[in-house]
Design a protein around this nucleic acid. Structure first.
Lengths: 165, 165
DNA sequence: TAAAAGTTTCAGAAATATTTGAAAGTATAA
DNA sequence: TTATACTTTCAAATATTTCTGAAACTTTTA
């Protein structure tokens, strides 16, 4: 397989993967493209290589910067802006898990905590409800703890953990 | 907060959470409703309580059964079908991670493995490409291993692991 | 066998999400 | 200051996903 074909394949697959994880295709593909290029790219470069409109590239680059996985590099003597992403997979994983924790786990923890305050006539029904949601809360808190640990640790911690499995 | 209000809140939140994880809202809400009820429910019960069409309920119940998290209970002397979900959060988590592994991690592993066969004139570029995608492959394989372990282990293994963190 | 009770399917409608491109905005250079 | 080079915004167009409901299908009962 030719390099360019492999690159396209990877960019395409990364986009598809993103979609099934609530990250839109364009965003995932821009990330993939940056991951594969050694210099930082301008908006025009990205527009051309991925055949996307200016607005789309601009919006998704901004989203990637919000996630903390793409940065703007200003080149001296160049007025245009250039963008790049870190090549360190570990760092990427940490950053993504940190953001997803904040955006998705925290809200559900709030709801679960909140509904623990339910009350009503039928004591048994209330108890059953609290049992299920309480179990869910407990489990979620544990997962949350693991992710927090993960997103604050270094690569070494992770490799050590692997050996313990 | 009244029990019924708390239930609705939970069902609503579960639906929203599902959406950001590639699980559609109706599917997540049906699951939440089943999670909160002690007897199994018929399609009509679900249609009424969630205000959804018959087709929608039918399709999503089937999807939930495909995921292995909802089952059909036939009641003796009743012609209608009833559905229920397990209340064990641990078991639910195992089942979900098992399915997501199969549906999402496996395809990306295939692509990453596949593109390792890239070749081309520019040796340096090929090497760089393989470095990045190879790192990603390695990392993904590790995560895959953890999830596999998790989805085959019992609750006790998980709690032991927690203490090691 | 026919009617009744239930389930499944699927084409089209509705709702959501994404993308475009042109206009407005901003910063730098002349 | 004005022209130029670039970035941002956002309303409308497009694409995708989800939902509906009626018709087709299946199973049970009379």
């Amino acid at each position: 397989m030719e390099l360019s074909e492999a690159k396209n394949k990877f960019i395409e697959a990364w986009g598809t993967l993103g979609s099934s994880w609530g990250i839109n295709k364009a965003m995932a593909q821009i990330h993939a493209l940056l991951l594969l290029s050694n210099e930082s790219l301008s908006m025009e470069d990205i527009m051309e290589q991925l055949q996307m409109s200016r607005g789309n590239v601009n919006m998704n680059l901004r989203a990637l910067m919000d996630w903390g996985i793409v940065k703007k590099d200003l080149r001296v003597g160049e007025r245009k802006e250039f963008f790049s992403t870190g090549k360190d997979v570990w760092e990427l994983a940490r950053q993504v898990s940190k953001e997803r924790r904040r955006r998705e786990i925290e809200p559900i923890l709030n709801v679960l905590q909140n509904v623990q305050g339910a009350s009503g006539e039928n004591k048994k029904a209330v108890a059953e409800f609290k049992k299920v949601t309480g179990d869910l809360l407990n489990f979620s808190l544990k997962i949350d703890g693991i992710i927090e640990k993960f997103s604050k640790s270094d690569q070494n911690w992770f490799y050590k953990l692997l050996t313990k499995l």
